[in-house]
Design a protein around this nucleic acid. Sequence first.
RNA 1: GUGACCGUAGCUCAGUAGGCAGAGCACCAGUUUGUGGUACUGGACGUCGCGGGUUCGAUUCCCGUCGGUCACCCCA
Length: 426
Amino acid sequence: MPEFQTSPGMRDILPPESARWRRFVSVFAEVAEGAGYGQVISPLLEDLGVFQRIGDATDVVTKEMYDFVDKGGRHIALRPELTASVCRAFVQHRPLTPWKVWYTGSQFRYEKPQRGRYRQFDQVGIEVLGADDPYLDVEVIALGWEFFQRLGLRRVDLLVNSLGEPDDRARYVEALRAHFSANLDALSPESRVTLEKNPLRVLDSKREQDAPVVAAAPRIADFYGAEASAHFAKVLEGLSALGIPFHVDARLVRGLDYYRRTTFEFQGATLDSAQNALGGGGRYDGLVESLGGPPTHGVGFAIGLDRTLIACDDEGVFEPPSTAVDVFVVDTTGGLEALRLTGELRAAGIRCDRAYESRSMKSQMKSADRSRAPLALIVGTDELAAGTVVVRPLRAERSDTDAPPAAGQYSIDRHDLIDHLKKALP
RNA sequence: GUGACCGUAGCUCAGUAGGCAGAGCACCAGUUUGUGGUACUGGACGUCGCGGGUUCGAUUCCCGUCGGUCACCCCA
């Protein structure tokens, strides 16, 4: 074991997986920018208070934040999520509304790591600030759905719910508290603790013991006022109009307290229930205000890279992209010619690699094969003297084992090489 | 934070009732004096996660610790 390794819950993303990450983000950028969303790049660090406004009943804020006092005495936190940062940026810069933005980046939560759950994790997401249209909720959900489709995922379930207006929600929480308190004996000890802090979360319990009491709990739908009912009905109408399959899950409550009215979650059907949330979001009217801004509507979602990529693996879609170069230069004259040639080729936009340390031709050809380049360019003493280069197609089936080793290759004048390659390469 | 299981080569894993550390794959080289897939031959690679204890002797037994996986919790 090396002396130094990554901290718990932190990882290195190496090639070729790193190329897949980059493409993941670029696919998301295409979806978002194709709908008029611009990218926000916000700092990794924020004043601790920005996140404390999210709510003091959420573990993300109370137990899981990386925070410290900087050299200037400021109390700083590594961002545990991005919605609060976006809202802070909105309050600070006051852009025109509706403000439609997308983002990507690392977030930090001090949790015990598991598969699909890391202390530094990446998300992509969108937020829209300053519009109350229920069809906007639908647009936001549809963009998330579209993104999963583009990745090739087919086994993603969309769950939607409404938490009602703040008043509705407050009355519902009281009803829940009453219900669970009356059935305290039947609840698991863990849920009794949860009940004290946040009765909504008890609905989320995965313990079998809690199932009967949870099933008998009051339904949020019975507490909607006229406004919330109308908004939710329009959301469902819009989803149906777009042909996006969904089901309403009255027990869907999200972990962050700021959600109101619409909430939704994308679940990977191939994942175990413990870590099956690929992404989620909802409407959070009121968050901007709590950060010192004007009353502002907000809606958005975030999608986790790790879990979504695990789902892609499970479904066998969105493979890592090939990072192969176009040609591989083999130089048996000492390497200076390879240095010149790769420089010229790269300047001409031809992607190329080479071998080093003056290895044998056999060894260099082996490297060429491994590089997955379609062509090898071979320069030996004869070619160097004659001003030519041998072009050898690689990766072809060499079924004819009796053919001479050099079959299929050809020599070309050094001056014609770049033009020739530009035509020969796909 | 709680609980269970696991840490031996770059990777996947054997193994030792406590006595010089193993395989397959991968890597390097040769068989092939200028040519990549197969085959054969050879080579390099380990503080057996770390620290302490017991012992003549510990990778093996005991304790601790760090790391990983899984479940709870939480969430992406």
